[in-house]
Amino acid sequence: MSTALYELEGVRFTYLGKFPALTDINLTVEKGQRVAVIGANGSGKSTLLNILDGLIFPDSGVVRFCGDVLEETSFREERSNRLFRSRVGLVFQNPDIQLFCPTVKDEILFGPLTLGLDTAAVAAAFDEITAIFGIKGLADRMPHQLSIGEKRKVAMAAVLVSSPDVLLLDEPTAGLDPRTTRDLIGLLNRYHAGGKTIITATHDMHVVEEIADVVHVFSRDKTIIRSGRPDDILADTKFLEEHNLIHIHAHSHDGTTHAHPHQHVHHDHLHKNP
């Protein structure tokens, strides 16, 4: 029996019928997998996430979710719409788009209440998620008063509060300071340990190895040019450089300037003596 969560065959999408955003995408995502979609700006990562979330639909090709074809008509029936929305959550790249409610509390409660979850369960989930993200104190604040890191946490909490089986993340670490990035990675991995599927679109090479078991690389032609294990792909610096995923970094040693491809894949560790 297939464990495929998503199956995409020959998916093509254009904006306004003439600007290609995705070309011939063939992709399978297994249940419980951690997938990273990497690529330079404008390579189609966000469009792919919107398709996986059933917000837009391909011009041609097929998208299947748990074996069922995802098309516009699938969302017209209230029950199936709610079922899909409760199973799949998308955290948008721009938190200002996602945070549309007057307060943080309203924002976090919007999804579960709209999906018709039990009020007592929603209240318990609210307490739990705000404690996890350390945002209890922000409950009555207005989203526009928050810092970018706080906004991102609230956006994430607003999706995770419904505990979706599939989490789609669009550039989750953009604009975050190192400590918040680290907290976020820890949280995602804990979430994954609960059997959830996580699909992350990013061009932050620092985090890919920690958040993914499988990596799909998008090219400038808006198609998947390579798929594989993160360590294999991240070790191929020539390939990453060709696809604008690492840059040439120049610096000085003892008065001599030299340049090399720059990435932070392998980290040095400081071990404290016991």
Partner: peptide, 10 residues
């Protein structure tokens, strides 16, 4: 609107 739909708004 997309963000609202994504969280079940109908």
């Amino acid at each position: 609107y997309g963000a609202m739909v994504a969280r079940g708004y109908d």
